[in-house]
Design a protein around this nucleic acid. Sequence first.
DNA 1: CTTAGCACTCTCCTTGTTGGACTGCTAACC
DNA 2: GGTTAGCAGTCCAACAAGGAGAGTGCTAAG
Lengths: 358, 358
Amino acid sequence: MDARKRLVLKAIVDHYIRTGRPLSSQALLRKHDLGVCSATIRNDMKYLERQGLITKAYSSAGRVPTEKGFRFFVDWLLELGELTHPDQHAITESYRVRRQEIERLLRQTALLLANVSGYAGFVLAPRLEESRLESVVFAKLDAEHALAVVVSELGILEHRVIPTRLSDAALREVGALLTERLRGKRLDEARREARRFAEAEGWHDPQVQTAFALLLEALEPRPGRRLYVEGLFNLLKSLADEGHRLEDVREVVRLLGDPERFGRYLEAQTAHTPNVQARIGSENDLPELAPCSLVFRGYRPSGALGVLGPVRMDYGKAFSLTTYIGNRLEAILTLSHGHGHGRSVEEALEVEGEVSRS
Amino acid sequence: MDARKRLVLKAIVDHYIRTGRPLSSQALLRKHDLGVCSATIRNDMKYLERQGLITKAYSSAGRVPTEKGFRFFVDWLLELGELTHPDQHAITESYRVRRQEIERLLRQTALLLANVSGYAGFVLAPRLEESRLESVVFAKLDAEHALAVVVSELGILEHRVIPTRLSDAALREVGALLTERLRGKRLDEARREARRFAEAEGWHDPQVQTAFALLLEALEPRPGRRLYVEGLFNLLKSLADEGHRLEDVREVVRLLGDPERFGRYLEAQTAHTPNVQARIGSENDLPELAPCSLVFRGYRPSGALGVLGPVRMDYGKAFSLTTYIGNRLEAILTLSHGHGHGRSVEEALEVEGEVSRS
DNA sequence: CTTAGCACTCTCCTTGTTGGACTGCTAACC
DNA sequence: GGTTAGCAGTCCAACAAGGAGAGTGCTAAG
């Protein structure tokens, strides 16, 4: 395909992304002076149409990109820019807010993806099963209850109120013992270990037995991974602009309300590569996503994030943003590795700043 | 208004709620044999129309209720039933899941409202400012960090990772002291007291000062109250069935994504009475809620919950459900009062069962 | 107050018409 | 070969017109 044809395709996609309208051969020339007349453009368009890259709504309408056209655009024509300075600034500011637990951090990230992109943003939490346990802490709340906190290298995984009459000192002892035995183990290993531990005859005190049982319950794997979705309104707005019907859109909302299903999908899609990818319209295996495009990537360890917008989304921005925020989040999460959890976000960002310039 | 006219109105509203279609005088007679002919019904309809209770889309269409008609229906004609047994069972089952923190409890409740009603469900958290502080607990996580937990009578209000090098013993001492001084105070009083405390010269250790500063930050009032919304898909589905356009519906979604605004509205609406109320369509002061009806109530202490559905919602079910779940939640929350927080939900439910029969 | 009957109104669906925006094609041109 | 000019052809979108059907409003009688 020669340069002019690519330019014609790019012009059609750009125009369609901006306006949502078809582009005619003459209108194209009005914008870009290619030094040829409209008939030539029409011939090019014909070629592109034969390739399945563009189509027309009816025989004498202007051309719009097909999904294949978007795909070609994304793969070959998209100019990946940097995020604008204000956007970068907003992201930095947003992460600057005090120390975070993993849950808040991920929700914040989803919000950020949504706000900056103008579409919906989502973050799939890492597989906590695989993170390594750092400590188990008990804190006496009142005579009858204590708080059990499970901390991994990623931060606080779980905190649960458990009923126990054990003394503060006894609780601390149990916590210390558990921490010593379980530290560095993956969560699932830790669970097995703790279970063996609880069943061992060595520990006769029924109070301790009960505390263990409850802790094990707190360690129990969640049915699915957590999924944070924000910016639903943005998504509805763009899909409305694109002329979609409420009946189709609501199925998208249903999917986003089903973390199980959507999470599994994201997991499958990021299994082979952590790189930024796009799934355009019906390229998505989930039929309800047909009106949408997904731009997403994996992040270490074992998570995924991205934005969900209309097929005619601003892919350039979506790609930059997903890449950028993915790097940030990865830096924040992996920096706490081995340094004790809860490291200040400011520190993480400073180091990340260096990393990103490398 | 005589009995037959009321019956005609009820028939029209019932039919409209079920099918979303207008009801003609003849169709009405086919359903309910009133012993009169269609012309009589038409006269009744004319009367109801003059009262502004029903209307017709055009001069020769059947009648549909106006919002005023719905209001009359809700106020005078609605037969308040009990929840069906399966529904009650589902609710009980759902609350039976282990001990909960307030956040999980409220989210769970919103989910329950959504699932049982088939519309969207929401829960506005109580004004935490007004709940009385029970204890402040610190737990050492690692050399550099500790977890600060603020517990009120409602349960765990806030937990934050704070950086501190204080020893475990010192932390416990600070916690005990704080608890002693602050217990029983309202959160805002406690904050002032803690601030005085921190500024008092008596405490010179900069470490402790820092810990205090961070704790104060954790006590800082959230910008707004928490709002939990679930079942958005349900809402979109009903609004779609009602023929609403995506453009209108998305404004509702926008509102629900703005806890600040929606929360303030609920607060204002429940300020005068905790009873179940309905706001039908444009009775709502928020213009974007015009396509919806709100059925809601307050619950002690100072919270609100309810369902958000289409104007042609099943008000009977919405009322029963909101009442029932409100009572349950109230029982769970107020029972923990003074008994130490985190009381088992099972116990609360048992007592609640007795209350509801009284 | 109720009824029967009829005229009337308005929607909904189909059909037709027209203007305009584009394309596709062909033949000539470089 | 690629490119151009011109023109025929296609299709939509908007509007108008007409007919069937559903349901009301009204009037006069019971």
